[in-house]
């Protein structure tokens, strides 16, 4: 697969504080690459170095096969789209005018109506950004990043501060971009977002890569066991429950079994309920997530 970004031993110092401690990553064409970590882990520093907004203290960066020394060259800037963590627009310009202004910065650009259509903002083209909702403003920021029809898009925490509905629409949009062949470098501290969108992820903490791989593999490796929650009537005694599994516990009015073999455990629960004549209600399967991966790798919750 074609490598779009290669980073070797990248370091960033802020005075005596080492924000990035020798990062090595590779991003491939057409994938959504997730860069995950808690606040202050070094995600934005990493992203801004790649965008040319920060100087690395050490290390090598190659983008589209070219070594990035010093500033990112204009010819590379022509091929990248950027959504910064904080979205602010030029004052006194309407949505379509902002896009038009940005077309003047690039050699090759999309037709403005196409960019607006892509982010579903056609009806808002004559509105000022201050009259848009948070989600619409973020979609506008993405439209700006797409105006030069980039091959690589950097998204810095694109859904932070958005309501669930807006977040969902941004996720749909990012998936659409991927299906159009774009390579996406995404930073987030939402594990749900990374799990849904990313083909591969790198988890960083305190400026160091602690693990990388596909979400599925990481979950399988570090996520731990799945959980099956169920309630039954009448409420069984602890002794009867222990007859079902040793890894069972009662939490309020329901029971939880932790297991590595979901199918087998579900079958056991059904047989057990028939044997004791319990009627099962509210059976839930809780699979491990990237949150669990992070917890198991660092011993901390992601948002601690």
């Amino acid at each position: 697969m074609e490598k779009i970004i290669t980073v070797k031993n990248l370091k960033k110092m802020y005075g005596s504080f080492e924000a990035l401690k020798g990062i090595d990553i590779e991003v491939y064409k057409g994938e959504i690459f997730g860069f995950l970590g808690p606040n202050g882990a070094g995600k934005t520093s990493m992203l801004e170095i790649l965008e040319g907004l920060r100087r690395p203290s050490d290390g090598e960066i190659h983008m589209f096969g070219k070594e990035v020394q010093g500033d990112v060259l204009p010819e590379l800037k022509e091929r990248i789209g950027v959504v910064l963590q904080q979205t602010s627009f030029l004052d006194h310009l309407k949505v379509k005018e902002i896009l038009e202004l940005f077309t003047s910065f690039f050699k090759k650009t999309l037709v403005i109506s196409d960019a607006l259509k892509m982010v579903d903002l056609e009806e808002k083209s004559n509105d000022y950004p201050e009259n848009l909702s948070g989600g619409q403003r973020q979609r506008l920021a993405i439209a700006i990043s797409l105006i030069n029809d980039p091959d690589l898009i950097f998204l810095d925490e694109p859904t932070t501060g958005l309501d669930p509905q807006s977040r969902e629409s941004i996720w749909d949009l990012i998936e659409k971009l991927k299906s159009n062949g774009k390579t996406i470098f995404l930073t987030t501290h939402y594990m749900e977002e990374a799990q849904r969108l990313c083909d591969r992820i790198t988890i960083i903490d305190h400026g160091e890569v602690i693990e990388m791989g596909t979400p599925e593999k990481l979950i399988m490796k570090y996520g731990g066991e799945s959980k099956i929650d169920f309630a039954c009537s009448p409420t069984p005694s602890i002794e009867v429950l222990k007859g079902l599994s040793e890894n069972i516990q009662r939490i309020d009015d329901h029971c939880r079994i932790t297991t590595k073999n979901i199918t087998k455990t579900l079958e056991d629960i059904v047989l057990w309920s028939k044997k004791y004549n319990f009627s099962l209600t509210n059976v839930f399967l809780i699979e491990p997530t990237l949150e669990d991966v992070f917890l198991n790798l660092t011993g901390r919750e992601l948002r601690e």
């Binding site: 950027v82 910064l84 602010s88 910065f105 690039f106």
Partner: peptide, 11 residues
Amino acid sequence: DVLKRIRVTPI
């Protein structure tokens, strides 16, 4: 951050 946004374009 408008300048920052413009900084990442080729202008």
